[in-house]
Structures are given as C-alpha cells and as structure tokens.
Design a protein around this nucleic acid. Structure first.
Length: 579
RNA sequence: GGACCAGUGGCCUAGCUUGGAUAAGGCGACAGCCUCCUAAGUUGUAGAUCGUGAGUUCGAAUCUCACCUGGUCCGCCA
C-alpha cells in the first residue's frame, strides 16, 4: 500500500468507516482510487448513492488527496499527481534494474535475512530424441518463473530430471545396434539418435501388421540386460546418451535455458523402495492380493496406486518420492515446484498426497505448475511418427524470419550485428507467444502467429524499448541528479500520468506474478505499458519539447524504458537498444 | 462410468482467485497518419445473446447447481 492509499484509509476511518477496501477504477476519469459504498448501505440503511454523496461533502481534501468526488454509489479519490509522479519516477531512477524487487525471507524467521529457497524443476527430456515444441514451452515457462521468483529475492535452484533410462531409450539403442553399422553422428547428434527411435517404431509397426512382435521383445530383453549391468549394453547406452546430451546442450543454449542441477533417472530409479517398505511397516501402505505394495487413496478420491511391484521392482512414482525427499534434504528447500504438463495432474496429486501420508512436513510445499498441451494444426504431436516440431527447427525459423525483417530495414548493417539482433528478436517472438497465454490453457500452435512481429508480440515490446533507447541516445545532456533537481513534475498530461501510474504498479505486478507463478501477468502488463508509451511517443515531441517539458519527458522515457527492460528480462527476453 | 481443465466479436486472448461504473486488447477487414525523436509504430470504423439454462445478490463474464461441447487423466508407462 502506498502513502496515498494509506491517507485515504485514514480519512475514511476518521469519518467512521472502519473497514474499507479501495478499488482502482477502470477508467482514470473516475479518479485514482474508488471506495464503493454498497456494503455500507445495509449498515446505515441508506442508498449507497446518498452515502457517497454525504461522504464527499464531509471529507476535506489534503495535501496528498486533492479531490474527493462522488459518482453514483462510488466515492472517488483523486491523488496529488505531482507528488505521486515525483515519488514513482525518483524511485525508478534511483533503483534502476532493481526497481520492483522485493524482499521475502523464510517463513521461519529464526533464520533472519535468510533467503527463501525454491527449486524449480523443468524441461525433463527423454534421451532418445531431440527436444520439441512441448519442451520449448516447458523451458520458457521454467526460465520465466525462475526469474520472476528471483526478483522477489528468492534463492532459486533450477533443476532438470533427465529420463535417461527405460524401454523407450532401449528402442533407439536397439535400432542403432541393428541398423546403425556403428556409424558416428553425421547430423546434430540428438537428431541422429532420434532417427533410430523413429526407425524402431516404423519397423515394429510393420512387424505388427504381419502378426509378429520380435522387436518389442528384443527391446524388453535389452532393458533387462541394461538393468543387470551388461557391459556391452551399458557402453552403448553411455555412448548414445552422450550424443544426445551434446545435442541438448546446444538446444538449451539457443533457448537460453540453464540448470543448476541435473537429476538422472538412471541413478535414482531404484531408490525410494526403502521409504515404501518403511511406510508398509507403519501401515501407511498395504499389500494387495498379488503382493504388490499399494497406496489406498480411495478416501481422497484418487484411487489405488501401486508403489512397488509384486516382484519387488520399483516404478516411476517410487523414484519420485525419493527424489522429492532428496531435493528438500540436499537443498533445504522451502518450496519445490514441478513444471510439468497437465496430463500428469493426477500423478502429482497422488505423489503429494503420499508424501503427506508419509509424514513429511514439507509435502504441502510441493507444487505442480501444470500447463496445457501444445497442439499442432494437424493435431497432437507424436514423436514416434515423426509428427513433431523440433525445438531447433523452430528457433532457426524464427531467427531466420527476424533476419529477413532486419535486412529489409537496414541494408548496410554488418553481419555480426544482424545476427545479434535476429537472435534476440526471433527468440522474443517465440517466447512471448508461449508466455502471453495463461498456461492453464492448451495452445493450438499457430505457426504464423508465433513468428509474427506485429501486434501483441515480443518484438512489439522490444521495439518500444528500442525507440525509447534511441531517444535517450540522442540526448546530449546527461541524466544525473542535477537534472532531477531541476525537474518539475506538475507538467504531465493525462497520457503521461497514466504511464507513471503504470510504472508505480510494477512492484505489485511483479509480486503477483511471483505469488501466482504466472509470467502471463508480466506479458500482459508489458503490452499495456508499451501501448501507452507508444501513444505518448506518437503524440508528444520529446527532444523538440521546450526546456521544462523536455526534462519531464526525458525522465519519463528513461523510467518507462527501465521498467520495460526489467520486465522483458523477467520473461527471459533480451531488451535490445536498436532494431 | 468417474475426476480435473477449458469454452468471451470471423480467429487468438485479457478480465474469473477477491462479484461492482461503458466487457479490454491483438490478428484479419475497411479508411487514415512518415519534409518530426525507428511505420516492427499510430488513429478511426465495423464486429460480443461472455457455451446453454436456472439460482444466490441491490448488482454475475466473475460465485453455486444442472446441462452441452472440446481436451486430459483414471494402481504395477514415464
């Protein structure tokens, strides 16, 4: 709450209104803050319009609150905009890229000044094929959420659980063993491995048609051998996985995804059994008629879930239980976030419930950040059939398009600069497209829209930033404290005040985005801010403005540019000086 | 059959958590704006029974219930 809001609450309180919730009117014509009088109408048995009217006569303006005006059942407050503008702009100017950051500490305040620690797990690839569009959405969300949390002064640990073992891995291994002739990768190595996975699926499909399933059985056999530690198989596995990692690293780099910690399924897939056995002893779990250990969650309407098979082997959720514990113990986490698609909603409900039943206090601090599926125009992606959009291709395509657009505009620009801008702009289009929609929704991927540079897009925001940067570059006078001292803050028009109001809201926006883990709050905010800023840019001369206005506008441009840049960085998008 | 998620102009979305003043943007369409700080911009016009029906309320896109449509998931895959 800012000092203006506090003042209004104080004024209302002085006139006998104890609990007052202020609203921000939809249109600034109505004022800066509004107090709706509907709820009071019951208490005082009066028409809310009358109450508003009476209050507007009783409450006298102050230094901070310039005008109080009743419109219908609303009591509207107009704050001292000069004072507000000065406050906001001074703060942005002083704090620079730190404007909007806030402090959050651990809930257990015993550890004073200790940063809250949150792990964000995302990406989680399989090592039998290259990353695709779904991984891109996942990584882009993961990165943005991590940045947004860090901005709240939280220590974020980014982790990646690599699914590096299992039957699907064996399938590509088997195909390579049979038909690969020991060939070394002659294309990007993860794509190279991927071709054998597709090859396996095709050959297995053909077999099925003729009524056989030898290949499937061979793959099963290979998995058994892998589990027994068969040297030949392990060596092949290591070899092919190393190719995949080489390819992945390149893709991570091109997307700007970085991880602090990798977990490998192969290292933990057997773990967790002990936890389950202990749970069995303590009657948290039970055995069914086949001898498998199960968790009965029917009371919670989650059904029954097998945790350890009758033969004593573990399954996916067993390792997940172990990994959840490992994460909290290894990193002393306050919270653990899983960025995983919505098709695993039930899995995580079950997992978290089981952790709770096992008595882990931190179970309630696990959170599944569930996002919708990405559909292609021709339907669901199927990597077995090769019906995918590969991450690398996608990135290449958007960058190429950006390159084309840049060359259209700047014929003489040197190649190095073209590449730099093309990468920033192309990725911005892609990332913004994936982040602007609330991720509860499925995305029906529209190739045209995703690489569009006009309208509600990343490049639109970048463009606004670049234009503001350009204005500042052309200014001779240096922005220093002296300039600030001479500036008058009472010269702004309505549009400019509106921009300043939005700048003042940024800290709250950043907080909201963090609390709700929603990067789309930032994208929406940036679009609004940029639109307002572009209107202002279009309507008002800046550099050619008379002395007094020049100062005021330059400071406004500087601060808007600052906040737009900060916002873009939160989304994992580069703000560039020139486009 | 059950659980969860979504349904807002031709298309894509915001608003829904915490009910409030004329439902906010973009794309596409049409009509304007570059001797002026980057036209990747900007101005205007047309275009919405907020899936349907009921309920709660002074007031519902927002809350509740039922239904319709689409999607996802439903113990020994990950």
């Amino acid at each position: 709450m800012n000092k203006f809001q506090k003042e209004i609450i104080y004024l209302l309180n002085k006139h006998g209104i104890k609990e007052s919730i202020l609203e921000t009117p939809k249109s600034s014509d109505f004022g800066d803050y509004a107090f709706p009088c509907f709820t009071l109408s019951k208490e005082f048995k009066k028409d809310p319009k009358q109450i508003a009217n009476e209050l507007s006569n009783k409450i006298k303006p102050t230094k901070l609150i310039e005008k109080i005006h009743a419109v219908g059942p609303y009591l509207n407050f107009f704050i001292n905009k000069t004072e507000y503008s000065k406050d906001v702009l001074t703060e942005v100017f002083k704090k620079k890229h730190k404007f909007g950051m806030s402090i959050s500490t651990t809930p257990n305040s015993s550890a004073r000044n200790q940063k809250k620690r949150i792990m964000v797990e995302f990406c989680s690839p399989n090592t039998n094929k290259p990353l695709h569009l779904g991984h891109v959405r996942n990584c882009v969300i993961g990165e943005a959420v991590s940045n947004i949390l860090k901005f709240q002064n939280i220590k974020v640990i980014k982790s990646n659980l690599v699914n590096d073992r299992g039957i699907h891995i064996c399938k590509s291994m088997l195909a390579y063993q049979k038909w690969g002739n020991n060939k070394l990768p002659d294309i990007k190595p993860d794509f190279f491995v991927g071709t054998y996975y597709v090859m396996f699926s095709q050959k297995a499909e053909e077999e099925k048609k003729s009524g056989k399933d030898i290949l499937e059985k061979e793959a099963q056999l290979m998995l058994q051998k892998w589990e027994q530690g068969d040297k030949k198989i392990i060596s092949l596995w290591k070899r092919m996985n190393s190719w995949v990692y080489e390819g992945f690293n390149e893709t991570y780099k091109s997307l700007g995804a970085e991880f602090d910690r990798f977990f490998y399924e192969s290292k933990i897939y057997k773990e967790g059994k002990e936890i389950i056995l202990n749970g069995l002893k303590e009657d948290v779990f039970s055995k069914d008629e086949t001898g498998a250990i199960i968790a009965n969650l029917e009371k919670e309407k989650l059904g029954k879930k097998v945790l350890v098979r009758a033969d004593g082997t573990t399954i996916y959720i067993t390792q997940d239980i172990y990994l959840a514990k490992l994460k909290f113990e290894e990193y002393k986490l306050d919270e653990s976030i899983y960025v995983v698609g919505s098709e695993q909603n039930l899995h995580f409900q079950i997992l978290f419930k089981i952790l709770e039943k096992l008595g882990y206090k931190w179970a309630k601090n696990c959170r599944h950040l569930s996002y919708g599926m990405v559909y292609l125009p021709e339907g669901k992606m199927k990597s077995r059939e090769g019906k995918v959009i590969d991450a690398d291709d996608l990135v290449k395509e958007v960058i190429e398009l950006a390159r084309f657009e840049i060359k259209e505009r700047h014929k003489d620009l040197n190649n190095k600069e073209v590449e730099k801008r093309a990468r920033a702009i192309g990725l911005s289009a892609l990332k913004f497209y994936l982040l602007k929609t609330d991720f509860a929704k499925d995305i029906h991927y529209d190739p045209k829209e995703s690489i569009s540079f006009e309208g509600e897009t990343g490049p639109y925001v970048q463009y606004t930033y670049a234009r503001l940067s350009s204005v500042l570059r052309k200014l001779d006078e240096k922005l220093d404290k002296k300039l600030f001292g001479k500036t008058k803050f009472n010269v702004y028009d309505e549009k400019e005040k509106e921009i300043i109001r939005m700048l003042g809201e940024f800290p709250e926006i950043a907080r909201d985005a963090s609390a709700q883990l929603k990067p789309s709050i930032i994208t929406r905010y940036l679009l609004d801010l940029c639109q307002k800023t572009n209107e202002f840019y279009h309507a008002n001369p800046i550099l050619a403005a008379p002395e007094e206005l020049l100062r005021a506008r330059i400071i406004l441009v500087h601060c808007a540019r600052q906040v737009i840049g900060t916002g873009l960085n939160l989304l994992g998008i580069e703000a560039i000086e020139e486009m």
